[in-house]
Design a protein around this nucleic acid. Sequence first.
DNA 1: ATTGTCTGGTTGTCTGACAATGCTTCCATG
DNA 2: CATGGAAGCATTGTCAGACAACCAGACAAT
Lengths: 210, 210
Amino acid sequence: MTVPLRPVSAVTALTEELRRRVLSGEIPPGTALPEQELSAAYGVARPTVREALAALVHEGLLRRERHRSAQVAEVTGEDLDDLMFVRRPLEDLMAASLAGRRVAEADGALERMAALPGDAPWSDVVAEHMALHQALIVAVGSPRLERLYAALAAETRLGLVRLRDSYADRDVLVAEHRDLLDAIGAGSQEAARRAVAAHLDHGWGAPPGE
Amino acid sequence: MTVPLRPVSAVTALTEELRRRVLSGEIPPGTALPEQELSAAYGVARPTVREALAALVHEGLLRRERHRSAQVAEVTGEDLDDLMFVRRPLEDLMAASLAGRRVAEADGALERMAALPGDAPWSDVVAEHMALHQALIVAVGSPRLERLYAALAAETRLGLVRLRDSYADRDVLVAEHRDLLDAIGAGSQEAARRAVAAHLDHGWGAPPGE
DNA sequence: ATTGTCTGGTTGTCTGACAATGCTTCCATG
DNA sequence: CATGGAAGCATTGTCAGACAACCAGACAAT
């Protein structure tokens, strides 16, 4: 049952594959991932597995305790609140830095998101959403901002996957981001800040059922 | 020439030891760190070394390219500017969250820093400085803010080590942080913000010679 | 002087193994 | 029957040794 892996290196290949499977929901939160099992399943050595797991733990996608198998992280409401808490200042910084600019890649991602067929899987929507934010962050040109954002991106994405309900249809999501890009493009830090706040507040901070 | 290592695990022990040696300046920037050499020097297996190196690369203390030895990172003026650029919003967030509180651990670190003998090595001053900031961040109680800050801490510290010159004596450093703690304690976000700005601006942003 | 090749050194990955530790299960006992 | 403890099992942490892939610099040929 060995699944062959081509890309750059065995470690990055395995890392990407596991990340994909976790983010797509194929491997649900709480699932244990024993090193031996992965080693056998993907036909790579255990050290390789360990390295890949370490990378994902670093991203916040997995959690690991000594002498226990790595587990897919459970993202609680508390975690989402905390995530929003730290993301806001970073997004504000981004918006302020980009004031007056239009980022072509971000516009492209937004268009692609809007153009997705109505029955497209939610994970596709999430993927374009992440691409949009990623493009904005990269446009700022700060390597460290990129690093910080990357450290939160996976977890954010994991959380967003199970927020599917609060965005009954994705038009809201598209509209929110159009506002954000417009606000940034217009150079209004105030408007951009408001757009960021609206986006981050959506669903997360609200008590269940709201 | 095997140097024995006690702590928790071999990996964390080696990680801490290397971090200490890099931050103390014992291993200067640009130095290559071949895995074999470290393996032999510390009497641990190469996989253990690789894991430790990966952790330090993640912290920004080392840089690594494929098939090249890990190198101690060179921190340029540009890097310091970038570091300040992302640290400011995080510090602001911290100050705002702590408004009106006094953090005992931070006060303690400040006192210890002030009480250091005049001829104490600069690295000791830096250590207390980092402890102070760390205490503040922890007091906020946001796991993710802690994570983000940790991702920048090592690099910050590395940069601070070579800023020794711009702080001819450490009284300035002590005074700046006393202002910061007072401003937070007084609950004035404005004052805290100003204190953060003053601290971060000190030396970093200025062109060489200033 | 430029280009191509070769060689040494280093990393990427594998196999195989053993010790340390945590969890589980089962038995003996109250 | 319930409870406590001990043995056993599963899994990780670490090690040793090995080979292939690959980069860099030196050297030779044009």
